[in-house]
């Protein structure tokens, strides 16, 4: 896939605020007709990247092409080709839902009659027909998001940018939004979506780019990233500190991995591949050896842990999966 035929190409983007670099050598290539997930914590630069690519923000260095148009030289062509649904619903809160869609359709230079028909279709499609005449300021968060997404779809965008589209949505609205995105992609739209949730990237994205400190630090399918982000770990606490060496030997024999020993709190931990089998075997071996155990847990890396692993940080909070 060359730069010319990709839907989104960013090369070496830099954007600084004072001495802070929001984007620091940001590179990204999104092939046409695919969904790319930008994954990263708050402040990683995801939103800045989206604002640069959607012509909302000027940048200091690098270059970017969206739908084949240079973002700096032909921003108006980029705008004609994209849709944007941001973190905060960008709708006119005073106008009604229908008036919003008609307004944005008119500003996309559709003829008035076409706009009105299209607005009704979208209101129906997003379940907003009943509230179409009410001012958008009275909508619930989910309704406003749906209206916002509908506003991005008045004409089918070649590239749709979704900046944390499901933040604050209930599960049903979230599934509906995912469904709408899949439909668009099936019709050939390219989607660039930012999210803090691995699950969302998992559900929608063909490829995921992990963003940290203003640059892409890892790329791959979500399965690839999970594998790379480190395995599950088994942890156990023995009752008697004197039995730590014997227990460590057993753990090493069962898991085959390097065992980390923390004497102070009498804890052992080691990576496991087949977690349940390893847990069962280890418990049996410990009982046979007469080693008393206070606590056993299996830990699976969370997005935080996976992210820290990918970015070379220190493994932080892990979620307790099974406690015995």
């Amino acid at each position: 896939m060359t730069d010319e035929t990709s839907a989104v190409v960013a090369r070496g983007l830099r954007k600084t605020y004072g001495r802070t670099a929001a984007l620091d050598g940001f590179d990204l290539t999104v092939p046409r007709g695919t969904v790319c997930g930008l994954l990263g914590p708050n402040g990683a630069g995801k939103t800045t990247a989206v604002r640069v690519l959607t012509t909302l923000l000027r940048f200091d260095a690098g270059h970017a092409r969206v739908a084949g148009h240079d973002v700096t030289r032909h921003p108006e062509r980029v705008r004609a080709a994209i849709g944007l649904t941001g973190q905060y619903a960008a709708v006119d809160e005073t106008l009604s839902g229908r008036q919003n869609l008609v307004l944005f359709g008119r500003l996309r230079h559709l003829p008035p009659r076409t706009v009105r028909r299209r607005a009704d279709e979208l209101l129906d499609q997003f379940g907003l027909t009943d509230v179409a005449g009410r001012s958008a300021g009275t909508y619930s968060g989910g309704m406003r998001r749906r209206l916002d997404l509908a506003a991005s779809l008045i004409t089918t965008p070649q590239v749709l940018f979704l900046d944390e589209p499901t933040t604050g949505l209930d599960p049903r609205s979230r599934n509906g939004l995912w469904e709408a995105v899949r439909t668009l992609v099936a019709d050939g739209t390219t989607v660039l979506l930012t999210t803090q949730y691995l699950e969302e990237a998992d559900q929608l994205a063909d490829r995921v780019s992990v963003v940290d400190a203003g640059r892409v630090v890892a790329e791959g399918t979500s399965a690839e990233l999970k594998t790379r982000s480190g395995a599950d770990r088994i942890e156990l606490v023995v009752r008697d500190a004197g039995q730590l060496p014997a227990a460590a030997g057993l753990v090493e024999r069962v898991t085959g991995g390097p065992v980390r020993v923390d004497r102070e709190i009498r804890r052992l931990s080691a990576p496991v591949t087949d977690r349940i089998t390893a847990l069962a075997e280890l418990l049996r071996a410990l009982r046979d050896a007469g080693i008393a155990v206070e606590d056993v847990v299996l830990r699976r890396p969370t997005l935080d842990a996976a992210f820290l692993h990918l970015t070379g940080g220190h493994p932080g909070g892990a979620r307790t999966e099974v406690a015995a």
Partner: peptide, 21 residues
């Protein structure tokens, strides 16, 4: 969005033409 989303007949934007003119 409670119902299945269908593929709509979407009008094409005149914007690209306008911006090029």
């Amino acid at each position: 969005m409670t119902t299945t989303v269908e593929t709509p007949r979407v009008p094409s934007s005149h914007a690209e033409r306008a911006s090029a003119a």
